[in-house]
Design a protein around this nucleic acid. Sequence first.
DNA 1: ATCTGTGAAGCACTTCACAGCG
DNA 2: CGCTGTGAAGTGCTTCACAGAT
Lengths: 213, 213
Amino acid sequence: MEIPSVVIDRLPLYARVLDNLEQEGQTVVSSQELGIRLNVTPAQIRKDLSYFGRFGKQGRGYNVSRLLEELRRILGLDHQWRMALVGVGRLGRAILGYEGFMPQGFKLVAAFDSDEATIGQELGEIRIDDVANLETVLEEQPVDIGIVAVTAEEAQSVIDALVGCGIRSILNYAPIAAHVPRDVQLRRIDPVLALQSMTYYLKHRQKSPSLTG
Amino acid sequence: MEIPSVVIDRLPLYARVLDNLEQEGQTVVSSQELGIRLNVTPAQIRKDLSYFGRFGKQGRGYNVSRLLEELRRILGLDHQWRMALVGVGRLGRAILGYEGFMPQGFKLVAAFDSDEATIGQELGEIRIDDVANLETVLEEQPVDIGIVAVTAEEAQSVIDALVGCGIRSILNYAPIAAHVPRDVQLRRIDPVLALQSMTYYLKHRQKSPSLTG
DNA sequence: ATCTGTGAAGCACTTCACAGCG
DNA sequence: CGCTGTGAAGTGCTTCACAGAT
């Protein structure tokens, strides 16, 4: 069965709240309570989870630790994933520097830049390589996920290079609509688009769609 | 007529490509060509634009400058919008430091932090205020948009304070599902969720299983 | 000949509502 | 009872397909 991608996108959200609940010492939770915490309807949570199995107990709810573990397994968060950063300028350093960014299970194993002065610098335990050597370096040291933090102009060719290396998941911070093959996951982080669509509602005073932040 | 929020979300994307086209000197564009550049179907582009008027010429396409101007007007990008940043730690500085972030028409006019050492520092032409004074400062100097770059723990109370000041658009970088009234726009920038959902596809569509973990 | 604008059809996601179990 | 799991109904977005304009 093909699971809707919107469902997959919500699973990390559920996992995060379950993590919070576990740390608060709560052992059982209902879809209603999860829904309140996440601004999601209880029916949607139950439906989403039902794609993967029957994790709840009727009359009681879900065991927090059990459900969290299941979600981590489903999402592959019980693996270690290797990432490469391309573009170690201001933006790239900011992404890494923000300590909350690198979650459990994700590890940076390579970094690339095109700037002479940047190449050769150390980034934690990693040496910054010339982006021209991207293919050869990633052949030796394969990665699962590429993070693109170069300029809009360079982004598409960097993404092409990553795809050429067999990478099938890319997180793109460059403000372009990049092209990738169907089997490659591409997510865009683009705060400017968010700002520019919010102004519509500021101008038009329209009722907002129900959103969760 | 109530315009679907997914449509509003795509308009800045269209505007960006039209901006590129204008700079390339192209004067006319078809929905087909826009669609190719954006990975969107031509029908969707035409449908989206039809919510707002009839901007094209049959047999020719759209005038690039004209359509760009219309979209800017619709989105309110012909206004000047004032923003406040709450949280001037690593993340907050990174957001501002990345020069591509602050687009035309958006201006930072206030910044807040809770850290003694940070309060009083200059940020461009702005003095960083104590977040405890948020209400009073924003009463004197009202803003349209709030940018939240504080920790997960502080985020909800900061968002409540912003909402209390009458702010109706918030860009939230903290990894929480915040609660706001229906008439407040809240957008979340959460790269970790993006990473954690991509791993699902890595795990489930991978040809050879990952050896790590 | 080409490309827009748009009702209608199609598709996908969400919500309902209730059987069933603890 | 309370709460899950789930077919069915409902809703909303996307795509089709073609009349109409240049």
